[in-house]
Design a protein around this nucleic acid. Structure first.
Lengths: 352, 352
DNA sequence: GTGAAAGCGCTAACAG
DNA sequence: CTGTTAGCGCTTTCAC
């Protein structure tokens, strides 16, 4: 059970002894403080090389009250969006000299609290969070009580922490506008049933877009699926069999997009001649699909950059006392999956 | 530049003082050593609660020479395979009381060395690696010189470290056997050009399967694409236009699979009537695609379990002096994308 | 410019 | 059973 202690390696004391200088001098050259003779520096550096000395990070942390480590809590790295985000965060943080501890909360409130508590006791210098239970009182309390700078990603909390938000409303609004401009009047939105901020905002943007163009928002055309898996195929199929079927579908997320495309292909409908498709989120295959699928994407690099800058500035003690909030645009990328609305939709023309 | 030190929180000394006991006694109840009176325990526990005391991890690490942290080096979490693997690893390690530091090497040898060195100086208790440059001399040296238990994932190194390998050869062999049993004689393999172990083994298994069934291994039917992106569509299209076109395609990886499916659909060929398709790797959409795509998958949970057990046993000092190697099976899941070879392939029947 | 020494928070060994 | 103490490896005063 109890893990074996690692064998000890060369310490700064060994370096000092080998170099024939005091421990303090060794420390000074290691930390590049200027008060050192060239000769001393040389001796110490030689000793460092000879012993393959590496400073002990735990000792530094204890002394400096700094771990140079950022805790990252995501619901699930398996979600490509988060994976990309993490990669970008890690990239930027590493150039700033930080490493990342990554934990998946799997949307479990209890686990989120536990992870936060571990981050705290491990002395993370800062924390980046995209928790699933941001509205849970205890999770919120844990977030606010953590005592180190926090950046919250794409979450709807009126919190005292810095935040990076995605601009879902105008993004969706723009998508609807574009489809309306192509002549579409019956546009369906397929989403997962989730009460979280991003989802609410997207639906909000969708509705506002429809209204702005004088299009009716029909409740049956906003399909909220219980889970991300497997229900979309049937739902889309049913939708497309209606006499007043939609001429455009906005599909939210990789799975739903996939099943939507399958349903369309299964009905032998053509994209974009019979139906236009827009994906919310830009999975890798969207661009390589035939036809390429139009997507609304968030610039995850920009999000990572914003989060990093927010956090790093806090670590330096700047940034003021008020929480800051950075908004990241959503970009619409039109590809071949969007075209003019078909003139008649009663009996869709068959493939070939 | 220099990060601000965190404000200090309650220490064990504060707890002891508030409880009115000695520092040693406080430590004893915190660490659940038995030599404590119920009364002492109670007092200490009350003080802990009152101060919201959490042990300082850096101090513990320094003292115990143990960080309860595992360094994980992957080429890229953005690869869904690695993301799943990481999630499974993190899950298991967390129940064993460890947290995971995750770094993406992006296949850069220099960075891999750097990360390894950081892991070392940060005193990781163990390391789990799937590096891109496992054949690079310097990377290898860094791996062997790290001085803590290492588990290597799916990499072809005759190393002194424990390894978890995937059983690619029999897996591919089995896929080919199955296709041969369905009457296929011309089977194409589409892979990325990569000299790494997994790829070599897969090709090896493919060839051995073909030979075992007396099928010719034609070099033109083993397509090695320069990168994972964008070349597959053209290559597959060309392949399928040949008079002696393959009747089955084995596609390696998510991107290639996608483009392969697009190419097939673009030529108006039907799966599985005109062509059978097998995916190496089982991306989420394979099961929900219409028709569902047969896949050869590795059990990533089993891999994570093996890696965890290998590492944990080393951390406990057991496992012997010799490197151990665990082989993880590849499972073939047949879905609707495979069927009997078409009788004639000269002019494929058109859809509908 | 350099050395000596204190102490970060903790555990474990030792004495009582 | 409890208190005292040494030190893990490091940075940083403070004298010299």
């Amino acid at each position: 059970m109890a893990p074996l202690p690692r064998p000890k390696s060369a310490s700064i004391r060994d370096v000092a002894e080998l170099a024939g200088v005091s421990l303090g001098s060794a420390s000074r050259v290691i930390n590049k403080v200027d008060n050192v003779t060239a000769k001393t520096r040389e001796k110490v550096e030689k000793a460092i090389a000879a012993l393959a000395y590496r400073p002990n990070h735990a000792a530094q942390s204890l002394r400096l009250r700094t771990t140079r480590t950022i805790g990252c809590l995501l619901t699930d790295v398996t979600n490509p969006l988060y994976a990309k985000l993490f990669r970008a965060l890690e990239e930027r943080m590493r150039t700033a000299g930080y490493m990342m501890l990554l934990a998946n909360s799997l949307n479990l409130a209890e686990r989120e609290i536990d992870i936060l508590s571990t981050f705290q006791s491990r002395g993370m210098d800062g924390v980046i969070l995209a928790p699933g239970n941001e509205r849970d009182r205890d999770v919120l309390k844990a977030i606010h009580g953590i005592g180190v700078p926090v950046v919250l990603l794409d979450r709807d909390i009126k919190s005292k922490t810095d935040q990076v938000l995605f601009d879902h409303v105008p993004g969706m609004h723009g998508v609807v506008s574009r489809l309306a401009a192509l002549g579409h009047r019956r546009i369906a939105l397929i989403v997962t049933q989730s009460p979280n901020r991003p989802m609410r905002r997207r639906i909000e943007g969708f509705c506002s877009g429809m209204q702005a163009h004088g299009l009716p928002v029909e409740d049956e055309f906003i399909v909220r699926l219980p889970t991300a898996m497997s229900a979309a195929f049937a739902a889309v199929t049913a939708l497309l069999k209606r006499p007043d079927r939609p001429t455009a579908i906005v599909a939210m997320g990789t799975n739903i997009l996939n099943e939507t495309l399958n349903a369309i292909s299964n009905l032998d409908m053509r994209i974009p001649q019979d139906i236009s498709v827009v994906s919310i989120g830009d999975p890798d295959f969207a661009a390589s699909y035939a036809p390429a699928i139009s997507s609304l994407r968030v610039d995850l690099d920009a999000a990572a950059q914003a989060a990093t800058e927010l956090l790093l500035s806090r670590l330096r003690g700047v940034g003021g006392s008020k929480p800051r909030c950075v908004m990241i645009d959503c970009h619409y990328i039109e590809r071949q999956s969007c075209g003019p609305a078909p003139l008649s939709t009663g009996k869709p023309s068959r493939r070939r």
